[in-house]
Amino acid sequence: MTTVAMLSVAPVIEDSMAEEVAKAVDALEDFDVSYETNPMGTVIEAETADEVFAAAQAAHEAVDGDRVSTFLKIDDKRTASSSAADKVDAVEDELGREARSGE
């Protein structure tokens, strides 16, 4: 996989967004992408940026509301294949430890 993206889709509402965010995440199941949801968004991995765009559009359209805010940041590494996990591993190698707090 060479394209890694950070996707955040949310309705602009006062109450909990969990139900609508779940719809966006569920929409990703229809695409050939891998993903992991975290508290600030969802990391998506795919072979091409086109696959990421299609999945992100479906996630955006899955959310109901008068106003929906979507943020998509793409890292399309074209000269080498590097997964999201590889990127974290490289940072952890530099740190000499896990890239998280001691919780």
Rank of each mutant, 00 (worst) to 15 (best):
A55W: 05
P11C: 10
K73W: 12
L7P: 07
A55F: 12
I13M: 13
V25L: 10
A27Y: 12
A49K: 13
V63M: 01
V9H: 09
N38E: 11
S82D: 02
E36M: 14
L95M: 05
I74A: 00
S8N: 15
K77I: 09
V9P: 08
Q57N: 07
A5M: 05
E92R: 02
V4P: 04
I74S: 00
A27M: 08
T70K: 05
A58D: 05
V9K: 06
S101R: 07
K23N: 08
E29D: 15
S81F: 03
M6H: 15
D76A: 09
I74F: 01
M17N: 12
V43H: 14
L7S: 03
A18Y: 11
M6T: 09
E103F: 13
A24E: 04
K77W: 03
E94L: 10
T70R: 07
E36I: 04
R67D: 01
E47P: 08
F71K: 13
E14N: 13
E98F: 08
V9T: 11
D32Q: 09
V91Y: 05
A55Q: 07
D64A: 11
S34D: 12
V4E: 04
T2Y: 09
R78C: 09
S83A: 03
S8Y: 06
E19H: 14
D50L: 06
V88F: 08
H60T: 01
D30M: 14
V12D: 11
T79L: 00
M40L: 12
A99S: 04
A84D: 04
R100M: 07
E61T: 01
D30Q: 15
V68N: 05
A55N: 08
F71T: 14
E19G: 04
K23I: 09
Y35E: 03
R97D: 03
V4T: 15
E103R: 14
D30P: 06
S34K: 10
S82G: 07
S81P: 02
G102E: 15
E47H: 08
M40S: 09
K23T: 01
T37N: 08
E36F: 13
L7T: 03
R97A: 03
K73L: 11
V25Y: 01
Q57W: 10
K77E: 13
S83R: 00
V52I: 05
T42S: 00
N38F: 15
V33P: 04
E36S: 14
M40Q: 05
